[in-house]
Design a protein around this nucleic acid. Structure first.
Lengths: 209, 209
DNA sequence: TCATAACGGATACTATAACTATCTATAGTA
DNA sequence: TACTATAGATAGTTATAGTATCCGTTATGA
């Protein structure tokens, strides 16, 4: 398969494919000459994953590269997990978080063991932003969110457990981490619409401009 | 309060404040002369919300403007809801979704009434991406996600119900929609870490590079 | 009061990211 | 042989977010 066919098969333009080759997201084709190479079905599939990560998951090209590298590597699975979480969570380091911020997060996470990482830091950062924005979340709301997160987190781990082989597990980790966020956000919107229209039936058919 | 004090009080640089004024995100100060104006505490608060939406929520300046306009307007609350959902959900229109895509989404959403909008379309889009990426989600995982979304969606509506007055409700809708996504994603990571380390205790202290 | 600093507002500039276009020498092809 | 396609390098484009500079005017304090 030549690059024109790869472009046609994947729906990605030739210059963009060349970009991904340059940046190392896509492995080079098999060289037949100094300026000829052939590509395989694996390249088509890889391009699909790249577009999924960048278009649906909203990852930058650089972030997509790090998680793709993690899939290909033979790093322990929990490292891949951490890399995927970090790639999908913009700029989450512990700096600029005060003890108060972390205490608020740990309080919210009551019942969950926590470690330094995207989860704890992200919760701390978001709760601080909510407090600053004047959105005081009451206990009932917080309990619902924690309960929902527990259900999902366990389901995610179960799903990975059910995969066989490191590559399948790693792909599930990466795709699941990135697309799970998007799916959850969309489901949340659908559920909001459901309960909103259930509670205010008269308005249920109105839509925003 | 002059612009230098507004900058100091909000932590936003003067040129950036001028940018937000130009773009209409921040209302102009009270003019005292042709080239003098004074700003209030409301401007400080507004800047906080703008930074929250753009920095934590990841909204573009243009998207932030639309939801801020929605807070200020006297549109029905469910319109504000829709606008906030749309602003926080990049490019979710129904085009490019096939009947198959929508059927898959509706199947997933079983039990929830659904309408055309960011929720249904986003679910359809994400599930299609998962299928293309070869991540087949089994029934147990799907049930967990739907259950979690129901818990959260109802909690969100309850929280809004408990607010008094249109402005408070509208602010809760906007901040809650945008920051709720971020909080949920972070909680999910924390829960994944929790169950992962519970299940594989030997690896629990390792961290990704 | 008058020199200097700060102001509002307009304009121009910079940085980054993600593509896109063009160029060159070479290889396949009709 | 003529002509298109190719790999790879280089340069250009677009959009977004923020920064810097300039201008004439206003405030301020020694």
């Amino acid at each position: 398969m030549k690059i024109s066919q790869l472009s046609a098969a994947s729906g990605v333009s030739q210059p963009t494919i060349k970009l991904y080759l340059r940046e190392g997201l896509l492995p080079p084709g098999a060289k037949t000459h100094a300026n000829q190479a052939t590509y395989s079905e694996a390249h088509v599939r890889r391009l699909g994953i790249i577009r999924t990560l960048t278009q649906v998951g909203g990852l930058s090209v650089a972030s997509a590269k790090t998680v793709l590298d993690a899939i290909d590597s033979d790093l322990p699975l929990n490292w891949t997990f951490g890399l995927a979480q970090r790639a999908a969570s913009p700029d989450v380091d512990g700096t600029d978080l005060s003890d108060t911020d972390l205490a608020r997060a740990d309080d919210f996470l009551a019942g969950l063991t926590y470690h330094d990482g995207p989860g704890r830091f992200g919760v701390a950062k978001t709760l601080r932003a909510m407090a600053e924005a004047g959105l005081e979340a009451d206990g009932a709301w917080r309990d619902s969110y924690r309960k929902a997160a527990e259900i999902i987190g366990e389901a995610d781990i179960d799903l990975i457990d059910r995969r066989e082989g490191r590559l399948a597990k790693a792909e599930t980790v990466v795709i699941g981490t990135v697309l799970g966020d998007a799916l959850l956000a969309a489901l949340r919107r659908a559920a909001q619409e459901h309960f909103s229209s259930q509670r205010y039936p008269s308005r249920s058919t109105e839509t925003a401009p």
